[in-house]
Design a protein around this nucleic acid. Structure first.
Length: 472
RNA sequence: GGGCGUGUACCCAAGUGGACAAAGGGGGCAGACUGUAAAUCUGCUGGCAACGCCUUCGGAGGUUCGAAUCCUCCCGCGCCCA
């Protein structure tokens, strides 16, 4: 079934994904022209790690909407810019990462785009890597052709730079200071070579995006301006009998004269915030990642399920592809009966499905149901294995169970459910620990009778921390 | 280069010779109540073989029966003067 194409800007608007736009009316017109569709829209991603976090998911969703609107999403991997480091939003100079690492990270991140954009209807997306053009750039060339268009005065006005300039503890290196030039050049390059005229990103990217738009305008203006001069030179060369030179100059003049209208657009999504003011995307265990090696589907599902009431509708709009009607209905249900947590469940389900697939999402859902009902005991072995597939586990000796020599305090530390023995004792005293879903006291001794399916004991600390032990 | 400050646990911050593993706040964790939410209340928040022991108040030495606290040197940071 082919879905109705959406209107890009309107879609972003109701989803709360539209923060800034350099020329909203212009962009509307640009995207609406059926003669010239599909248009190309890009977002850049810096390969600073071998995975992406849910912070990066926002621009990815922007690209997904680009695709749904019938345009071509272009993923720009920062294989070149990643070697430099974006100072935006960073309070300290970062140490450079090796080009091998950057390359490996680019490689590792790529599947994420395939997955998310792959499951959306619309024109096929494409992936480019800016090391392909930045890598071969010469220093003199950059200074003459690009650097000339940047005013240092303007660059120093940039918030992220200004902050670092006034901070004596953490200055900014020439390297990071120059980052903006490279990102601007990316936009110019994509605009000129591939007709990519729209860049989207997070609000922290607005300055860099503007710099790109500016550069496009300036270079285009220069090119057009140089046409009469080139033509005159060509004529002069022809008159002097320098046929080859004349031809080459004339060709250049023609090419410049035909260069595209320097019409380019930038659009940003707002920074995602949480109602309680804490940082979005972080939990006690760290950032939430988009690959299962770093954040299991279960943990990912749990993250969304645990969203605060005040955030859940907002997150549904941003991080799922549910329609406005569907979200509105969930919102009504949520207002009427927040205790049912229907909106939370849907959010967790859809958000997990986008990244890890429907099947994993279902598994995560089943696991969540089983774990939080506390009814582990009645689960058949296969389902139990399934439920715990994403949860840390460890192996132990059955003989210790037979003679009841297992020290719970030690076991809690061993399974990382407690950080120290002191803390483990505290948890036991507080009644925070349960075995197979039922609470235990500090006096409880682990014994053979606790084994499920003759080999498994599930330990839970608090509401959310589980560990599976196998005894052989 | 000179002067005056300042550096304490995850963060802020008290402590200026013994009662100091170090007040208070924030954050975090756990418990109760709930809905795996929020708010609220309670407990915990350096470690251990635990009425004791070990490690920790920027670093290295020193004075002392005893140092986060006093002295010397070094390092970091802030403000002022040059």
């Amino acid at each position: 079934m082919t879905q109705q194409k959406i209107d890009f800007i309107e879609e972003l608007e109701w989803r709360g994904l539209l923060h800034q736009c350099t020329d909203e009316d212009g962009l509307r017109k640009y995207l609406a022209d059926p003669e010239r569709a599909p248009r190309k829209v890009y977002a850049g991603f810096d390969p600073t790690a071998d995975s992406l976090t849910i912070g990066n998911l926002v621009p990815i969703m922007l690209l997904a909407h680009v695709k749904r609107a019938g345009h071509v999403p272009v993923v720009l991997m920062g294989g070149g810019t990643g070697l430099i480091g974006d100072p935006s939003g960073k309070s300290a100079e970062r140490s450079l990462i090796t080009d091998q690492t950057v390359e490996a990270n680019v490689h590792a991140q790529q599947p994420i785009f395939e997955i998310v954009l792959g499951c959306v209807e619309g024109p096929k997306h494409c992936v480019v890597n800016n090391v392909d053009w930045l890598g071969g750039l010469g220093y003199i060339e950059v200074l003459r052709n690009i650097g000339k268009h940047f005013s240092v005065n303007m660059m120093m006005q940039k918030e992220s730079v200004k902050e670092r300039l006034h901070n004596r503890e953490q200055g900014i290196s020439y390297t990071e200071f120059s980052y903006m030039i490279l990102q601007a050049y990316d936009f110019w390059k994509l605009f000129y070579d591939d007709q990519v005229a729209v860049q989207v990103g997070g609000s922290d990217q607005y300055g860099n995006i503007i710099a790109g738009i500016d550069l496009i305008r300036r270079i285009s203006f220069d090119l057009i301006k140089s046409v009469p001069m080139l033509a005159a030179e060509a004529q002069a060369a022809a008159a002097a009998g320098q046929i080859e030179l004349a031809a080459s100059l004339a060709k250049q003049a023609a090419m410049y004269a035909a260069s595209p209208e320097p019409e380019s657009f930038g659009l940003t999504a707002p920074l995602v915030t949480k109602s309680d003011g804490s940082k979005f995307g972080k939990t006690e265990t760290g950032a939430i990642w988009l690959t299962r090696e770093r954040t299991s589907p279960y943990a990912y599902y749990q993250f969304w399920l645990n969203a605060s009431d005040d955030d859940v509708i907002k997150f549904l709009k941003i991080f799922t592809l549910l329609t406005k009607d569907e979200v509105d209905e969930l919102e009504r249900g949520h207002v009427d009966n927040p205790g049912a947590r229907e909106a939370h469940k849907k959010l967790a389900q859809c958000a997990t499905a986008i990244i890890h697939g429907k099947k994993e999402a279902e598994q995560a859902e089943n696991a969540s149901k089983a774990l939080f009902s506390g009814d582990i005991v009645s689960l058949p072995k296969a389902l139990l294995e399934d439920v715990f597939a994403n949860i840390p586990s460890s192996d132990h000796s059955k003989a210790d169970l037979e003679n009841q020599s297992v020290d719970l305090v030690e076991l809690l530390v061993e399974t990382k459910l407690a950080q120290s023995k002191r803390q483990a004792r505290e948890f036991l005293a507080n009644g925070s620990v349960s075995i197979n879903g039922s609470k235990i006291t500090p006096e409880t001794k682990l014994a053979l009778e606790h084994l499920l399916h003759d080999e498994i004991i599930a330990i839970r600390r608090g509401k959310k921390a589980w560990h599976l032990t196998r005894w052989n």
